[in-house]
């Protein structure tokens, strides 16, 4: 009888303690990361404590893939990490959905379209600035002309 009670108590203790163990393992503090993970995740060090458990696990997963990436990919990752971490969860979700959509269109084609789009936008902005500058210049010119015409009639 005593053995049965002990067995059941042991089983319950195991059952109740396991999820708690998972939770600790899945929510690592910065100091609990390996040095190699800390090096990769250094750009988001200041945001780490504010991340939820899921966010931390995700970054740990990315850091673990880092050694297998090409140098270019590593550089792009390091460059974009902070910007990605600063997005809201909704923005990140929307970006992932859009990524999957772009995968269907063909990543290379989308990249070319992005280059074309940014060039068009830059040309439009330059044209708009040129028009504004032209307007400003003509306004100055007309003001000068008006002052020149009005000057003789002004009392001394």
């Amino acid at each position: 009888m005593a053995q049965a009670v002990l067995g059941v108590a042991l089983a319950l203790a195991l059952a109740l303690s396991s999820p708690a163990a998972f939770a600790d393992k899945n929510n690592p503090a910065w100091s609990e990361l390996r040095p190699s993970q800390q090096r990769v995740l250094a750009p988001i060090r200041s945001e780490w404590d504010a991340l939820d458990a899921h966010g931390k696990l995700k970054w740990v997963g990315i850091a673990d893939r880092y050694p297998k990436m090409s140098p270019d990919a590593q550089a792009r990752l390091q460059r974009q990490m902070k910007e990605w971490a600063a997005l809201t969860p909704e923005q990140r979700r929307a970006a992932r959905d859009k990524y999957r959509e772009f995968e269907q269109l063909g990543p290379e084609e989308v990249r070319l379209k992005w280059d074309q789009y940014t060039q068009e936008q830059a040309a439009k902005e330059a044209a708009a600035k040129a028009i504004e500058s032209e307007k400003a210049a003509s306004a100055v010119e007309s003001a000068t002309t008006e002052r020149g015409a009005e000057a003789p009639s002004q009392p001394q």
Partner: peptide, 26 residues
Amino acid sequence: TEEIVEVDTRVLTGDLPIKAYLDEDF
């Protein structure tokens, strides 16, 4: 989490900047 890590890694290491995924005008 594994699926999300996979997608996030591709987004962050891809040729497109992050803003391309969020720019609704584009």
